[in-house]
Structure formats: C-alpha cells, structure tokens
Amino acid sequence: MKETIRSLATPFLWFWRWEAKSGAILLLGAVVALLLANSPLAGAYHHVLHMPIRLGFGDFGLEMGLLHWINDGLMAVFFFVIGLEIKREFLYGELKTRSAMMLPVGAALGGMIVPAILYALINFGTPTAGGWGIPMATDIAFALGIMTLTARQAPLGLVVFLTALAIVDDLGAIVVIALFYSSEIAFAALFVGLVAIVAAFLLSRLNVRFFLAYLVLGLIAWYAFLQAGVHPTIAGVLLGLAIPAQEDPEQSMLHVWEHRLEPWSAYGIMPIFALGNAGVTLSFATFDPGSPLFLGILAGLCLGKPIGIFGTVWCFNRFFKVPVPGNASSGQAAATGMLGGIGFTMSIFIASLAFADSGAMLDLAKISILSASILSGILGAIVFKLQSLRASA
C-alpha cells in the first residue's frame, strides 16, 4: 500500500519541486525586462524583440518577429507541457476520481468566474471590456514558490489542492483563449490542424510510442492553427493530451516527456517569456490607477480570486461537508485563495491577445497584472505568516 501511495505521489512531488523553484527565475526575468525597458538600453531591447526572424528553407519558411516566436513558438512548448500536466493530473493525481476533483475543479471555476465578472462590471461599455479573461488565470510557479517560502508548515493537502486548482485554472484559460481570443477563422487550415491532432490521438490509441511521429503531427497542427487564426499554442495543449500514458506512471511515455521538458519549460521558456513580455516603460503616461482597466484587473485578481476560491471551499465544506484540503484552517485556506490572485504568465499572455492592436492598453494591462500579482503575493504571504505565528503561540 505504501509503495502504491509513494508511486502516485512521486510525479506530484517532482512537479512541485520544479514549479516552486522556477518562480524565482521567472521573477528575475521580469525584473531584468523592467530594468531594460526603463534604461538607456530600452531602444535596443524593443528593437531586438521586434527583429524579424525567418525559419525554413527555400520557399518554405515562416518569418515573424522575435517576440512572436516567443509567444507563438516557445509558448507552444510551454502549453504542450501544460497538456501533459493536465493529463497526468486526471490519470494519476488529485483529479483522478470524481470525489477528489470536485473541490479543486469547483474552486478553480469560482476563481475564474468571479474575477471575470468583477472585471466585466468595472469595464462595461469601455474599449477595454474585451480583457475580461485577464484576471481569470493563476501563475502556478509564483503561487507555489511563495507558499513554499512563507508557509512551510502548511499541510501538504493544501499544496496539492493549490496545484490541482492551478492546473484546472490553466485548462479553463486555454478554453477561453481558444473560444474568445482567436481571430477570424480560416476553416480549411483549421481542418488540417484538427486532422493532425486526431491522427495523434489515433496513434496514442494504438499505443505508438515513437515521439517523432507526434512531433511531426504537432508541428503540422501548430502551423495550420497559426494560419487558421486559432492561437497556435492550442495545438501544443492538444498534442500534450494525446501523448500515451501507461498504467504505471513511472513507465509512461507521458511521464517521460513531462520529466524531460518540465525543467526546460520552468527554467527556460517561462523566464524568456517574462523577459520578452514584462518590459514595460514605467511612467505617468502609461500608469493610470483610476482607469477601468487597472481597477478591473486589480479587483479581479486581488478580490475576485480569493473570493471565488475561498468562497467555494467554504460553501463545499459548509453545505456538502467536503473537508478543507489538509484540514487547513480558514486562514490558511483564505491565504491560498489570495495566492491564486498571482496571475502573471497566463494573464500577460491573455492580455497580449486581448490588446494586440493597442500598445498603450497592453502596457497598462501589464502594469496592472504586475501590481495585482505583487499585492496578491504579499497579502497571501502575510496571512500565512500570521497563521503560522498563531499556531506556534
């Protein structure tokens, strides 16, 4: 029995270790980007980000700016890893059974719906109303990193709950991106991409474990989705879900590729994304704390997230007798909801889609996300520390 529990827990503990530690490097990337964008090197920084790069040979190639290659190319690998994480969690982890998934799924939904409503109410009838998806996301690396540093005595069940919640949150964000933040659809190209994804699922069904076949189909789907007007990172998620899994997690192709790619995603792709996207010029011209955009993101992440997450946990415990994860105190559960307000990576990604045609709105959205994420992290850390002091008193 102990061996079975250890086997099931190993993938989670390994994943937690990578995500918690990567938060510091992700923060470093964001800080370096802000310093560059507000230094004499700002011109060179923005020039490099928009420098065209062509990949391919002869007449077959694709040219995009460096920032587009980061957001559309590298982030497709990041989303592929998310797809692997989602599948692993549903097959082996906290979301394996209906009873186990009820609370994190419910809390994730509450933590997405309430922030979106708050943002929509504040921005109703304004040009920024389309950014309602921005405060729906939780950055799992930052959230777990802060919990690891400030809540060492937090029950492991609460850490598992936050991880499962963030993974469901990522899945919700992916659905929102696919349905609401894609441009006009070219159905012929979309059909080609979907055929490639279906072929990958068929290979998985046949238990084909030749990764190159999945890679080729993934590249076809990525390019087809790009041409179709559907964000190409969606192809990465779908391909991750198609990777075959065996009953034994340790022997699973799913586990092998998540194990290989997670360090590259956590320590490479996410910091590069931060370095390319967090570089905002800080000035009174870009910072408008009274704007509906700033207030909507701040309210969504700092209020909507904890209300939606903790409110769901409280309701499930009060009315359905679902135990609080790890038998945590109300304060610890509330602090976990506050950490859910750290949006950063996925929030900035959605903002770049929502305000792709307005540099000023995008810059203000990024400043708002950074401000709200920092405030959420500080509030969550303070409440965790207070709970720790109270427990030791």
Rank of each mutant, 00 (worst) to 15 (best):
F79E: 04
R54L: 08
L215Y: 09
G133F: 01
I348F: 03
P306Q: 11
A334W: 14
L386D: 04
P127G: 14
A166L: 00
I53M: 12
F319V: 03
L215K: 09
S329V: 06
L370E: 07
Q332N: 10
L121Y: 09
F225P: 00
Q227L: 09
Y214I: 07
P271N: 04
D357W: 05
L293D: 02
A266H: 01
L171W: 06
I25N: 03
P11G: 13
I269R: 00
S373A: 12
S265Q: 05
F287N: 05
I309S: 07
T163K: 09
S183E: 14
A200C: 06
L55Y: 10
A235V: 06
C315K: 04
P104C: 13
R205A: 14
L84C: 02
L144S: 08
L202I: 13
M102K: 13
R390L: 07
I185H: 13
E184S: 14
A328W: 04
S283F: 10
L241T: 11
G359T: 14
P244N: 00
K305V: 06
E250P: 00
W16M: 00
L165V: 02
L238F: 10
I86A: 03
G290C: 03
M51V: 08
A143R: 03
D363M: 09
F320I: 10
V383F: 02
A335N: 04
I117S: 11
E250V: 09
A245I: 06
L217Y: 04
V208W: 04
A30C: 03
F201H: 13
S283Y: 12
F225E: 02
L206M: 12
L375I: 15
F284P: 06
I367L: 15
S388H: 13
F287S: 01
P292H: 13
G29A: 01
L261M: 14
D288C: 08
K87P: 07
A33D: 08
A44Y: 12
S283A: 14
A188M: 12
I342G: 02
L55C: 05
Y45D: 10
S99F: 11
T10C: 08
V256Q: 15
V230D: 01
I113A: 12
I86E: 04
F78Y: 08
V198E: 07
V198L: 14
A351I: 06
I297Y: 12
F12V: 05
G73A: 03
L275W: 07
